[in-house]
Design a protein around this nucleic acid. Structure first.
Lengths: 155, 155
DNA sequence: CCTGAAATCACCCGTTCGGATGAAGGACAG
DNA sequence: CTGTCCTTCATCCGAACGGGTGATTTCAGG
């Protein structure tokens, strides 16, 4: 359960998922071929499966930050050059990824849950959090949320 | 540093503080008597010291909850019978003391800091927090703050 | 081309937190 | 006066968190 080597774990999961997909593909191909030549169903199945894989990969690489940004941006329409929270972000030199972690943090997620949502290891989350704490000059996660809220970085 | 027996610790602090006060009183009395008969100054000193003690004792017994309540109430003027957050408080059956802990929790304080501000032991804070978690149906303190904020219990 | 920032991952160690449980005293309604 | 709720305090144990440190990769900018 505790992902000490999350990279290895995810690689294993990748492999297992791909293997299961291939097995399912060949099996379904065989079954459908035997029963009747429902190639349309077969194509549909393939399409659905790969659509799922595509959606997952898309989430894996873009969603975690884009989804949050689209929530944040409309709340603060850019009047001049930078919105207020972006100014604060620059002043505190908080990186985009650190803001991602901060947003998840404000939702009350644990390190492991944040790691899962952002598709990184818990070690990475901890590193980001340590940087956030030092930049916000706080000691704990609840204080970080409180201060980030006061500074307008989140919500 | 870790207050395992906070009652004993506070009793010791009481004793030490009282002893220091008595020492200071006799010393100041002696000094002022020798220099000149500035009884007014002496009375003033006594008054200030005991006013401080009185304020501290007052805070010790009443302020921790009253001070926070006065922050909460004006934000939600009672329209009919119960203000919205009080309705939620009743529905969730969150006790006044638990709300006190919740308010401190939202400020990002640690268990020990909350215990100091509310003049209870960390064990008591932990008990209140456990009850809060079960009543709010959450697992961690950051989640509790998030949910309490969403429910309008705080801020 | 090289530097530096950003992002990622890892390990160790100590502290804090949370779950489970028991207990005791005060307040208050029935 | 008896049961119930609130508040308080306690212990044990496992999980989560935070500090410190080091390392690699990528990539933009000088």
């Amino acid at each position: 359960m505790p992902p000490k080597f999350s990279t290895v774990r995810y690689l294993l999961l990748y492999g297992l998922a791909l293997g299961a997909l291939l097995t399912l593909m060949t099996w379904s191909q065989y079954r459908l071929m035997v029963i009747d030549h429902a190639t349309e169903l077969y194509v549909l199945l393939i399409a659905v499966m790969f659509a799922g894989v595509g959606i997952w990969v898309g989430l894996r690489w873009s969603a975690p930050r884009v989804l949050e940004r689209t929530v944040l941006v409309p709340l603060a329409p850019s009047t001049d050059a930078l919105s207020p929270n972006e100014q604060v972000l620059d002043q505190l030199s908080i990186s985009p990824r650190e803001l991602d972690v901060l947003v998840q943090l404000a939702r009350g997620l644990s390190n492991e849950e944040i790691a899962e949502r952002l598709f990184v290891s818990t070690n990475t989350v901890k590193t980001h959090l340590a940087n956030i704490y030092s930049k916000l000059d706080v000691k704990r996660r609840t204080q970080a949320v409180e201060k980030a809220r006061a500074l307008g970085l989140i919500q």
